[in-house]
């Protein structure tokens, strides 16, 4: 279980997260909603212990262990995977290399490149293409596949549907829902409420660096009027 408590994160002297508290349980798909610039990506970066932002208060615990103070590779080694905003594939690596750089092909346990190719046949066709030669949808598939190669227990997905055609968004929703059913915890950052509702169990809404609303997906599906004031640009 991922437990985030009273986290305050700064970019320089600018306070971006002001006391965020939330959690992701095993096998749960949790959506983190909010408009642009509300601190969603900052929270993801704080969990991964990336060099920026600076977390100055609070705690981020993973199965009881404090993550703050670890290096990003230490966080990833604890089976927390990142699907970053904008995909951030490696332009000089082929599709196959994106998957095998983490794990030698000789390892057959957990996720393997072949299993990823089974899940995304489109990627299998493009296996010798480079990261920058793929379409938007293929890029997102590869970003998800790459994250799975560390055999994660929780995946942090930062706006995976951004910039994708509606049919690709649906495909992605199916994948996320299937992954959730395998017992994988997913923290899904989204701007699009409907896209998030299609897959998630629980919803948090973030506004100016704080969690302002928490609800189960079932509650939101019956009535989301209370959420809309946070999500619609006025």
């Amino acid at each position: 279980m991922l437990e985030i408590k009273d986290v305050q994160s700064f970019y320089g002297e600018a306070l971006v997260l002001n006391g965020v508290t939330m959690n992701v349980k095993p096998g749960e798909v949790v959506a983190l909603l909010g408009r642009n610039g509300m601190g969603k990506t900052t929270l993801i970066r704080s969990i991964m212990c990336l060099a920026q932002p600076q977390v100055r208060a609070g705690s981020i615990k993973w199965n009881g262990e404090e993550l703050l103070g670890l290096k990003p590779h230490g966080v990833a080694q604890r089976k927390i995977a990142l699907v970053p905003q904008g995909r951030r594939l490696f332009p000089s690596l082929t599709v196959t290399e994106h998957l095998t750089m983490i794990k030698p092909t000789s390892v057959k346990e957990g996720w393997t490149a072949e299993k990823i190719f089974d899940m995304f046949p489109r990627l299998a066709e493009r296996r010798s293409h480079r990261g920058n030669q793929l379409s938007g949808g293929e890029r997102q598939m590869l970003a998800v596949g790459r994250a799975l190669m560390i055999d994660p227990e929780v995946v942090l997905m930062d706006e995976p549907s951004e910039g994708l055609a509606p049919v690709m968004v649906q495909h992605l929703e199916t994948i996320i829902a299937e992954l959730g059913k395998t017992g994988l915890g997913i923290l899904l950052v989204e701007q699009n409420l409907y896209s998030a509702l299609a897959v998630c169990d629980r919803v948090y809404v973030m506004e100016t660096g704080r969690i302002v609303h928490e609800a189960s997906a079932a509650e939101v599906r019956t009535d989301h009027s209370s959420l809309m004031k946070y999500l619609v640009v006025q």
Partner: peptide, 9 residues
């Protein structure tokens, strides 16, 4: 940074 976030030191 992305390599680091994939568990590689």
């Amino acid at each position: 940074e992305m390599v680091e976030a994939m568990g590689i030191n």
